[in-house]
Design a protein around this nucleic acid. Structure first.
Lengths: 141, 141
DNA sequence: GCAAAAGTGTAGCAATGGCTACAGTTCTGT
DNA sequence: ACAGAACTGTAGCCATTGCTACACTTTTGC
């Protein structure tokens, strides 16, 4: 997870960070959609993210080049082993943040929105602290 | 704060969100740098964010157009009333998130890095919950 | 089986934020 | 005062992620 490495300048967030966030969001969505409805199509992702199918199509192409997912023209999208690994890690992080926000007394709707924004900016140390908090308050599922 | 409005699709984060995050980061930095050393120059911001002066120059131009800051060619950068307001709000949010992370037992270095990433993705409701937590644990300064 | 609907791809545009290279301005020190 | 250092601006490149418009493929329904 290159984007979560320590930085000499903590403010330094490059284009690559955004690209990695996008990748994580997409593989996680692909995984979720496949779990829900069997297959994942471009149109499903477009609906999920609220963007046009064109944007999805281009990003899917990039992630395919990066070896995270597989697809052929006009065909459904599946994850590679690497993509599945990333999706699992991303989903886990997402869940911890979400549960943590709930444990603070935040409503589900808000927790869902905020956890999506936050999950990409949480270090391993902070994630561990959240887990600790969940266990200590017995609020984890 | 347009970017923190409710969204019909919670996944929907547009280019504007990123632009707003940049604006918040910049006005906050300008404010901090002026407090620290009296004036804020392009080169200060470039150092602060670890990017080239060219990138800073372009973004400063945009923020000037948006009425957040003032500057003339080869001159220092100051904040407008609107920019000061945004800087104050942003700094306050930043501080709450930072203190909250510390209260979870996270080290200062990590809290500094993570709070910068997280602050833009925290809703008012979550911010209130963090404040509540700080007060209940007596961990606020 | 074939027309319409749904889905996907491509072309081409915009805004943002990275960069290097080079040119111009301001400040500094002697 | 003036040369060199420091700072700033501009030109022009790239990648990412938005979009509309249009073309093409696949699926659906009769």
């Amino acid at each position: 997870m290159a984007s979560r490495k320590k930085r000499s300048n903590p403010h330094q967030r490059t284009r690559n960070d955004h690209a990695t966030e996008t990748a994580e969001d997409y593989v996680e969505a692909v995984s979720d959609i496949i779990d829900e409805k069997g297959t994942c199509r471009v149109v499903d992702l477009a609906g999920h993210f609220g963007v046009s199918h064109v944007t999805v199509s281009r990003i899917v192409g990039r992630l395919k080049n990066e070896g995270l997912l597989l697809t052929e023209p006009y065909r459904p999208i599946t994850l590679t082993a690497s993509g599945k690994r990333m999706a699992r890690a991303s989903r886990k992080r997402h869940e911890i943040v979400y549960e943590f926000l709930l444990s603070l007394g935040i409503d589900e709707q808000t927790a869902a929105v905020d956890s999506e924004g936050i999950e990409h900016h949480v270090s391993e140390a902070t994630l561990k602290a959240m887990k600790r908090h969940l266990e200590s308050t017995g609020a984890h599922r």
